[in-house]
């Protein structure tokens, strides 16, 4: 029996900041899934390759009123202005090395096409894009754990979170053999969402009423980072803390988050 594929997909994520403990498993899962290399000194966070960065943000209040929130940031897979794939990074790439996939809404990165001009990095306000400043090196026998599903990147190119696109392809292949057009919700899940021990990350098709993310993105706690820039991200966050919500965007002193008129809040 064939199910009808009657809508465009917009894969997205909802990250519940009220659940995230900052454990960092999502980061490690992403490294392991995507053959992300590592170096002896990774403490310069500005040249470290990490497709997902768990930021630690604070309300800045003195002891004992200090509060902290962990904020995991993968690529926001921005739909951009007008939701036609005009993501900040895609439109600027001179060589179409990064592109917007209209079937899934995923912003791709073709390492072998990228020539390393880094214009896309300049364009991305989320710092989701990382440059391969060094040749990747795996010491000892560690090359043996590399996965064939994601090609290791060479020096001199940009990489970023792909929403584990290879998993989508594998799920599609499986569905194809089983003569299905539609994927089950649990069939395509990102490595970070799967690994998260608190279940803070929910992944799915934002356009599909049956997927958990569809409802979660409408949660009153939901917001997106830098919505005012019209980047139109497909990564949503949930928080019950007003200071966290405020930290998610820029506001003038007199402005209240949530009360700012925005054309594109919540995408569709």
């Amino acid at each position: 029996m064939k199910e009808k594929n009657n809508h465009t997909k917009r894969f997205g994520m909802v990250i519940d900041l009220d659940k995230c403990t900052g454990c960092g498993s999502c980061m490690v899962a992403c490294y392991a899934e995507n053959n992300v290399p590592f170096r002896v000194d990774e403490t310069n966070k500005l040249d470290s390759l990490s497709w997902l960065v768990v930021h630690k943000i604070t309300n800045g209040k003195p002891y004992p009123n200090t509060e902290i929130c962990y904020l995991p940031m993968p690529c926001m897979q921005c739909d951009g202005i007008g939701k036609h794939g005009h993501s900040p990074c895609v439109s600027v790439c001179p060589a179409v090395a990064t592109d917007y996939d209209h079937e899934t809404g995923i912003v791709s990165q073709i390492y072998t096409r990228c020539f390393g001009c880094r214009y896309c990095m300049a364009a991305c306000p989320y710092h989701a894009r990382k440059f391969n400043w060094w040749d990747p090196v795996w010491p000892a026998d560690m090359k043996k754990y590399l996965s064939p599903n994601v090609s290791p990147r060479m020096r001199g190119v940009v990489e970023k979170c792909s929403f584990c696109f290879h998993r989508y392809q594998q799920a599609k292949d499986k569905a194809f053999y089983e003569k299905r057009e539609e994927l089950y919700e649990d069939e395509y899940q990102t490595a970070c969402a799967e690994a998260c021990p608190t279940g803070a990350i929910t992944f799915g098709d934002l356009n599909n009423k049956n997927h958990a993310v569809y409802k979660l993105k409408k949660d009153p706690r939901a917001f997106r980072l830098l919505e005012r820039l019209h980047t139109n991200p497909k990564v949503y966050y949930l928080t019950s803390k007003s200071w966290v919500r405020r930290a998610g965007d820029n506001y003038l002193a007199n402005e209240e988050p949530g009360k700012i008129k925005q054309e594109m809040v919540h995408g569709h």
């Binding site: 600027v92 060589a95 179409v96 001199g156 940009v158």
Partner: peptide, 23 residues
């Protein structure tokens, strides 16, 4: 010098993205 893969600078011309200012 600035681009990470100098020999691939060619791709700007070969795979040009007409929307990009850099192109």
């Amino acid at each position: 010098i600035d681009i990470g893969q100098p020999l691939r600078g060619w791709f700007i011309f070969w795979h040009a993205n007409v929307h990009s200012m850099l192109t």
